[in-house]
Amino acid sequence: MDHRPQAWGRPRDDVYGAYDGSYLNNSGPRTVTQSPVVTGTSVIAIKFKDGIVMAADNLASYGSLARFTDVKRLRTFLGTTVIGFGGDVSDMQFLDRHLEELAVDESYEAEPTIDEDDQEAKKASQLNAGNIYRYLQKLMYQRRNSFDPLWNHILVAGFDSASKPLLGSVDLRGTSFTSPSLATGFGAALAQPIMRKYAATEEDAAKLTREQAVGVIKECMKVLFYRDARSLDRYSIAIVTKDGIELKEDEQLEKQSWAFAERIKGYGTQTV
């Protein structure tokens, strides 16, 4: 038996075998995020003649567990841009703080450098949705190229440098594109066909009124509530126009219920 002091209190090798310290060796490949953990599901958005409507439900799932039911996944930037996050919630929080830093940077320059009365110029010199969209593209693509992606699919809504409505999407690979209507996650399969019925092209979208656009979005949220198993009937909706952002974070799908499910054979914990 080993009586040396350095072996005191240790499991005996002759009984338990030598200690397996292999986990301490970092010789294998470095691993980073391999999958998201706490996740948000679809974000959907559609353009209309004066701006964009975006919505996302307030659920953060832990696998199939509906873990948090009050999570706000639509974030605003400088009161002019809305950014919707699907995917990993902690990565979303990281991005949110990062964007907060950018917004603080903007407050440094909040000094009008030209004619004092020219508030328009002051506003024009701040980062707009186009700039943020480009920034997020670069950020996501750079993270993917360092094999440490931020596990999100992001929608950006606001106005670009030419003061035109902008709706863009960036995913964890840095893939990005704009479209009159966009959806992340399951929404891409479930909501996008519905939205395209109303706004297949930019021209179609430019004909939609605000009420119509909100109606389409609500219709899509309803479909998602029934067809996406990781969804919720509580959601946030943001309407971006030239006048600013209207953000409601505690909306409820009206008169919707899963109660009927109990009568479906094979659903849930029925035994008969």
Partner: peptide, 12 residues
Amino acid sequence: RLTYSRNMPVRS
């Protein structure tokens, strides 16, 4: 220009 696709503000 690359990160924000805009002209850098001259003041900054």
